[in-house]
């Protein structure tokens, strides 16, 4: 893949020097900080609301590390995945519409290298930011709740990361295929909602990547779900989508 390393270097510098450094990492760290705090104060808030209603008695168990982790995962599964869709929508289409793809691709850089550098840089940003934010969440959880076992959160976040990485690759495919950032964002959101819809059907959840979200949530509970099939199918789908993105982009005229 001619030009891959240089173009990847450009992508990583671009992340560091532009708004891209703030969006996904910023959101992840924000949720890592706020989730343990929300878990801690929610019972007190509900209790004070109940006091305001005469005759109402609300019995809420004391919050634990599990509530903190669950809040963090909920934020990742909703807000951060939507951010992945929105930011990934312009990965290729943005360079095409601004003319910068022409600048790069009239040099000895293959289109496969261009697409793969996009995927690797976004994946690196997501994984790095997830490691940092998860560490922050664990630290704050220990500070607020006294204990924070690592393995359930690591399992849950790892499964979520596979889901997010798949979404990055899918978004790169859409971004390579659609002419505008808006169209690829629309297709990405449609894909995300569709996977949520399909996940209602138990066999799909058990044997395909649509089950990643459920597997991630249940990793915190007493009966974790078997995640091998969802993870393996996600890997296969990711490889196919990356290959598809390369082929789609190679066929395009700029």
């Amino acid at each position: 893949m001619s030009g891959f390393t240089t173009f990847l270097g450009k992508e990583l510098t671009e992340i560091r020097k532009t708004w891209r450094i703030w969006v996904i990492p910023g959101m992840l760290v924000f949720f890592a900080i706020t989730s343990p705090i929300i878990a801690q104060v929610t019972p007190a808030l509900l209790g004070s609301m109940a006091k305001a209603q005469p005759g109402m008695v609300v019995k809420i168990p004391s919050p634990t590390w599990r509530d903190s982790y669950a809040q963090y995962l909920k934020s990742l599964s909703q807000m951060v995945l939507i951010a992945v869709v929105i930011t990934g929508a312009g990965a290729v289409s943005g360079e095409r519409s601004s003319g910068t793809a022409v600048l790069t691709l009239t040099k000895p850089v293959s289109r496969a290298a261009f697409v793969m550098a996009k995927i690797v840089s976004q994946a690196g940003l997501l994984v790095g930011a997830t490691i940092v934010s998860t560490a922050v969440c664990v630290g704050l959880t220990i500070a607020l709740f006294g204990s924070a076992p690592l393995s359930p959160l690591l399992m849950a976040v790892s499964i979520w990361t596979v889901d997010a990485l798949l979404l990055i690759v899918v978004m790169t495919l859409f971004s390579a295929g659609f002419a505008s950032r808006g169209a690829s964002a629309g297709a990405g959101l449609a894909f995300w909602f569709l996977t949520l819809l399909i996940s209602i059907w138990p066999p799909a959840t058990r044997y395909s990547f649509v089950g990643l979200m459920s597997a991630s949530g249940r990793a915190l509970g007493p009966q974790p779900m078997e995640a091998l099939w969802p993870v393996m199918t996600a890997l296969v789908a990711g490889v196919l989508c990356a290959w598809g993105a390369t082929k789609v982009f190679e066929r395009q005229e700029l």
Binding site: E14, T18, G99, T100, A101, V102, L103, T106
Partner: peptide
Amino acid sequence: YLPDVPGFYPW
């Protein structure tokens, strides 16, 4: 190559 409307990375 110089295109008619060159596009550059603004940053």
